[in-house]
Amino acid sequence: MSNSSNLNAAKVTNVRPMANEDAKWLQLSKIDYVSPDGKARQWEMASRRTRPEGTSVDGVGIIAIIEKDSGPEVVLQKQFRPPVEGVCIEMPAGLVDPNESLQECAMRELKEETGYVGKVLTTGPLVFNDPGFCNTNTVIVTASIDMADPRNQNPQPELEENEFIEIFTLPLATFYESLENLGKQGYKLDARLQNIAMGLKLARLYGGK
């Protein structure tokens, strides 16, 4: 069972500045660099402290597809995210562990967050989430979920004590429209997910041209 509780009951109660030395997961840095016009300039950035040594990848996102007679569906999740003060619509995702391949990470995170056992279909290129602000990056992995597999008949997420996630699916055929409707309802849309949905919509509009 998803450890979702009442996601709408979650709320931010206070926001305050934090010194860099007090941060457990993040590192703030000031960059000195030379711009294309030859001038010395500075930039402020954030980075994760969690990237394993020996890898250039922070984490993975998983687009997991369930094949159904009515058409393929995408496995998604709802999760309260304090920085945006709201419930986000996201794909399953997580950080890479030391000595773990991207494919292993993706299947582990899919099982932990959704309970589903999947099979990797494709592994995408390294993408940067917000390069004007941080160097955090992701690799998007696509996966299939075989509902004939007995392990997927009653999927049970293996969430940590501080994780509260609600799992749901959306039809791939109306993915863009469904996300747009969720945004109108007040949910916060993960940019990577919305970009995939926009790509699908553009493929429908311009496919074959």
Rank of each mutant, 00 (worst) to 15 (best):
44 E>M: 15
145 I>W: 01
119 K>C: 03
193 L>A: 01
61 G>P: 01
202 L>D: 04
58 D>F: 06
37 D>P: 06
181 N>P: 01
36 P>V: 10
96 V>K: 04
38 G>R: 08
97 D>T: 06
28 L>Q: 12
34 V>H: 00
56 S>M: 12
79 Q>W: 07
138 T>W: 00
41 R>G: 00
124 G>W: 07
140 I>S: 03
114 T>G: 01
84 V>D: 00
163 E>V: 14
40 A>H: 07
167 I>E: 02
68 K>S: 08
193 L>C: 02
180 E>S: 15
176 Y>S: 09
166 E>W: 15
65 I>G: 00
64 A>W: 05
58 D>V: 11
74 V>R: 09
163 E>F: 14
135 N>G: 03
119 K>G: 01
80 F>Q: 07
160 E>W: 14
140 I>L: 10
76 L>V: 06
113 E>H: 07
122 T>W: 05
58 D>A: 06
84 V>P: 01
29 S>A: 13
145 I>K: 05
114 T>D: 00
181 N>C: 03
69 D>T: 12
31 I>C: 01
78 K>R: 15
81 R>M: 09
51 R>I: 11
14 N>V: 11
175 F>M: 13
22 D>G: 11
32 D>N: 10
161 E>I: 14
158 E>K: 15
81 R>W: 13
121 L>K: 10
104 E>T: 13
99 N>C: 10
55 T>C: 05
51 R>M: 08
138 T>P: 00
114 T>Q: 04
189 L>R: 10
125 P>Y: 03
96 V>A: 01
30 K>L: 15
